[in-house]
Design a protein around this nucleic acid. Structure first.
Lengths: 127, 127
DNA sequence: AAAAATGTGCAACCATAGCTTGCACTTTTG
DNA sequence: CAAAAGTGCAAGCTATGGTTGCACATTTTT
């Protein structure tokens, strides 16, 4: 089952702002919402919400240290993201190949009624 | 310049439903909004809006045929998407590598103040 | 120890995106 | 000509990404 976990992971990293926050966090090792907010074009609260989402999918973990909350990236889930991206990347390559082939040979109208894959995971979908 | 064209392309593709519509269209060669809507869990109007967006970024082109409007995928932009996905995929691999390395050697706190890349394109960002 | 500063969390509010339903309009078809 | 099929347009709902304002807790300064 393709599960909705991938869906959540995807929506978590699909947003550019969130990706930017995560990126900063990766290169920063560990940081607070405030410090991250200083390097990004939106408010601290926005950063906070993004971190909450990232934490929700296990990409990030918080550690309360006195008055501040420090966040850091968790490698495991980051690996899951990498896999998803890999899969999707291949997916699109195939799509491109398919469409190009169809465009060249047959005068590209309907022809291929092939398998449809899940747009999130790229795996075969139940029908 | 990383341009906002990539941004638009990205947001066009980031949505799973839209990806699904595009996918169906690819495997179908050419189709109307209605016929596509029959194979998807949301309304014809929703499909229509997605097609409008896809057309907006040049991924799809319409051709009016009497009472119906037929859509088909355009290879060129699909190639652009493939490139973006490739770039992003590599991006994430690198991130994973970085974070893993940091986690193993140094007790992963701040250390790498390296370059930050654009979350959309993966290319270096102006600062 | 009091006061000022720093880091958070919470709530109200806005705009936009994805969907839906309802309805009017045009082109086929029976 | 009337019913059917394919669209387009508009109103309305919900979720999401942002913002601002304010109260609270923990340091730091004087």
């Amino acid at each position: 089952m393709t599960s909705s976990i991938d869906d959540e992971l995807w929506s978590a990293i699909a947003d550019p702002s969130r990706r930017r926050v995560l990126d900063l966090l990766i290169h920063h090792g560990e940081a607070t919402a405030s410090s991250l907010a200083a390097k990004v074009p939106f408010s601290r609260q926005a950063v906070s919400k993004h971190l909450l989402v990232l934490e929700g999918v296990g990409l990030v973990r918080r550690r309360k240290q006195g008055r501040e909350v420090r966040y850091r990236v968790i490698p495991d889930q980051l690996g899951a993201v990498t896999e998803i991206m890999d899969r999707l990347s291949n997916e699109w390559s195939q799509r491109l190949a398919t469409i190009k082939r169809l465009a060249e040979e047959g005068r590209g109208d309907a022809s291929n009624a092939g398998a449809v894959n899940d747009p999130n995971t790229g795996r075969a979908i139940a029908r």
